[in-house]
């Protein structure tokens, strides 16, 4: 998927409420990037948080050794709820990608210098039978739009790293990923 000679450097912030799977979506991305032979860092915001508090991670993917694992201006962001939209819609670099869970975020971005993808992710996830798949729906949209990591690499990451207790949801996760990817097509 990669044009020869093009540098790979993506900084992705995934943000939502605790329990929405922002951290796990970032880990899937990190596993997939590692399997592609890329350098990758995954770093969560951490601290005295509780379920329903804010949960956020930053994933940096690069074809060279990664310096800073944190960025102020990401090249892409997934915002799963309204506070995340407010925090990261203005932060995405010009030319970057913003994936919005439009089921929970009613507002539209006013920026014309980024590619905004509205995905009714929570609704899609509910239709699939589990609202908690919204993270994977959004990840599918991002992966498709980003074009740096193939969707199949995320599927392999799901095969290998979906926690045992969620194993029965493997098929649904993959379906959620593909449904999301449809929204990421240009």
């Amino acid at each position: 998927m990669q044009e020869a000679g093009r540098r790979i450097q993506e900084e992705i912030i995934i943000s939502g409420f605790g329990g929405q799977g922002a951290l796990f979506a970032g880990q899937l991305l990190a596993y997939a990037a590692m399997d592609q032979g890329l350098h990758v860092t995954w770093i969560p915001s951490y601290g005295p948080e509780m379920r329903g508090g804010k949960a956020r991670c930053t994933v940096v993917i690069s074809d060279e050794e990664i310096g800073s694992p944190l960025v102020r201006r990401p090249s892409a962001a997934i915002v799963l709820n309204i506070p995340s939209m407010e925090a990261f819609e203005p932060a995405v670099k010009p030319g970057g990608i913003l994936v919005v869970n439009s089921s929970l975020v009613p507002q539209k971005s006013e920026r014309d210098d980024i590619h905004v993808i509205y995905v009714p992710a929570s609704d899609i996830a509910s239709d699939l039978g589990n609202v908690r798949l919204a993270n994977v729906v959004c990840l599918g949209a991002l992966i498709q739009a980003l074009g740096v990591i193939p969707l199949e690499a995320i599927e392999r990451a799901l095969d290998d790293h979906l926690p045992e207790r969620h194993r029965k949801l493997l098929g649904l996760n993959k379906e959620a990923l593909r449904k999301g990817a449809e929204y990421g097509e240009h």
């Binding site: 880990q27 590692m34 350098h39 990758v40 860092t41 770093i43 951490y46 694992p69």
Partner: peptide, 10 residues
């Protein structure tokens, strides 16, 4: 520090 403690890397 916590950044290195909490982060994941290959």
């Amino acid at each position: 520090d916590g950044a290195i403690g909490q982060m994941m890397e290959p």
